[in-house]
């Protein structure tokens, strides 16, 4: 099951969802010394690199999750690609 599934989405009103969201942030920071700002910056840079190979990637659309597995954690990024005319420039 997704570890940081709701890192950036969803409306939060009840205190339990707030607690969960705060915990997700705290645990990424505890485990990887990765602040929310750094996570944001990482997405911008991922978009930059990918844009060299693929039609424009929007950093704002990237969703990064960290999943805990048996032996390792996994970083999983969902990166929507804009469909359209292949860019032959």
């Amino acid at each position: 099951m997704g570890f940081f599934e709701n890192l950036f989405g969803g409306r939060r009103d009840r205190s339990a969802s707030l607690a969960k969201q705060r915990l997700m942030m705290v645990l990424v920071d505890d485990r990887y010394k990765l602040t929310p700002e750094m996570l944001q910056q990482m997405k911008v840079e991922i978009a930059e690199v990918l844009s060299r190979y693929l039609p424009a990637v929007d950093a704002g659309q990237i969703e990064v999750k960290i999943l805990r597995g048996e032996a390792n954690d996994y970083l999983k990024a969902d990166i929507p690609l804009k469909r359209g005319q292949p860019d032959v420039g």
């Binding site: 570890f3 339990a16 607690a19 969960k20 915990l23 805990r68 048996e70």
Partner: peptide, 30 residues
């Protein structure tokens, strides 16, 4: 891998969305 006991669950609070559920805790700690 250790196993987990979630203690002092208050079902009434969980049902109201005012306490982390066992599922929430499991998702976080895996």
């Amino acid at each position: 891998p250790p196993s987990l006991v979630v203690n002092r669950i208050k079902p009434r609070l969980v049902n109201r969305g005012e306490m982390l559920s066992v599922e929430d805790v499991l998702e976080l700690l895996a």
